[in-house]
Computed example of a mutant assay.
Amino acid sequence: MILEHAVLNVRPGRSEHFEEAFGRAKSIIAGTSGFRRLTLSRCLERADTYLLLVEWDRLEDHTEGFRQSPRYQQWRELLHSFYEPFPLVEHFVEVHRA
């Protein structure tokens, strides 16, 4: 399992619209082969900051299967205009669990 991690800094005053758009966008990514689940969490200390965690079967399911698909273009159109700056997306593999 691969865990995708992105801190999303939403333009000030746009959080409500971002959350509405994300509500529509989540079905786009969920239909991708290799997608397991996602969580979107809002930061308590910084209201316009979110943490996106997405679980994938394999790295390629995200980097090739999703990012190189028409689904990603729909995702981009719904969400990318909200970010400032554009988020760094990184992938992790589990080492320990408690």
Rank of each mutant, 00 (worst) to 15 (best):
P12F: 05
M1W: 01
S69T: 15
S15C: 02
S33G: 05
E55F: 01
E19S: 08
L44T: 12
G23R: 08
V10A: 06
G23L: 08
P85R: 02
A98W: 15
R36A: 08
R37Q: 07
L3Q: 12
F92G: 00
A98E: 15
E45W: 08
S15P: 12
V93N: 04
E16K: 10
T49E: 14
G23M: 09
R37N: 07
F22Y: 15
L79K: 06
F22G: 10
R11F: 00
V95I: 11
H62W: 04
A25L: 07
I2H: 06
R36D: 07
H80G: 00
E64A: 01
A6S: 03
Q74L: 14
Y50Q: 01
T39P: 02
S81C: 00
R71A: 15
H17C: 11
H17E: 15
E77H: 14
E16R: 08
H5S: 14
E20W: 02
E64S: 02
A30R: 04
G13H: 12
A30C: 05
Q74I: 12
E45S: 13
I28T: 13
G23K: 09
Q74R: 15
E64D: 06
L3A: 14
H17P: 00
R42G: 00
A98G: 08
V7G: 06
T39W: 09
Q73R: 05
L53R: 11
R67D: 10
R71W: 00
G65K: 02
V95Q: 14
A6V: 10
M1Y: 07
H5P: 00
H5F: 02
Q68W: 04
F86Q: 07
N9K: 12
F35Q: 03
V89H: 03
T63Y: 05
R37V: 05
R58C: 12
G65P: 04
L51G: 04
S27L: 07
A6E: 06
G65S: 07
F35P: 14
P12K: 06
R58S: 15
A47I: 15
H96F: 11
D48C: 04
F66M: 13
N9R: 11
T49C: 10
H91G: 02
H17R: 15
F66K: 02
L52D: 03
Q73T: 13
T49M: 14
Q68S: 12
A30M: 09
L44N: 02
Q74V: 07
N9I: 01
L59D: 01
K26A: 13
L38A: 01
Q73V: 13
H80P: 00
Y50A: 03
H96Y: 13
V95A: 10
G13L: 08
V89F: 05
R11T: 14
D48Q: 08
I2V: 09
L51A: 05
D61E: 09
V89N: 06
W56K: 04
E64L: 04
E19W: 03
L79A: 12
P70T: 08
S27V: 01
R24Y: 06
E16F: 08
F86A: 11
F35A: 03
F82P: 15
R46Q: 03
L51V: 11
I28Y: 13
H80E: 05
L40S: 06
R36V: 15
A6G: 04
H96A: 15
R42Y: 09
F86R: 13
T32R: 11
R37L: 01
G13W: 13
T63C: 01
P87Y: 15
N9S: 14
E45L: 13
C43M: 05
A6F: 02
V89Q: 06
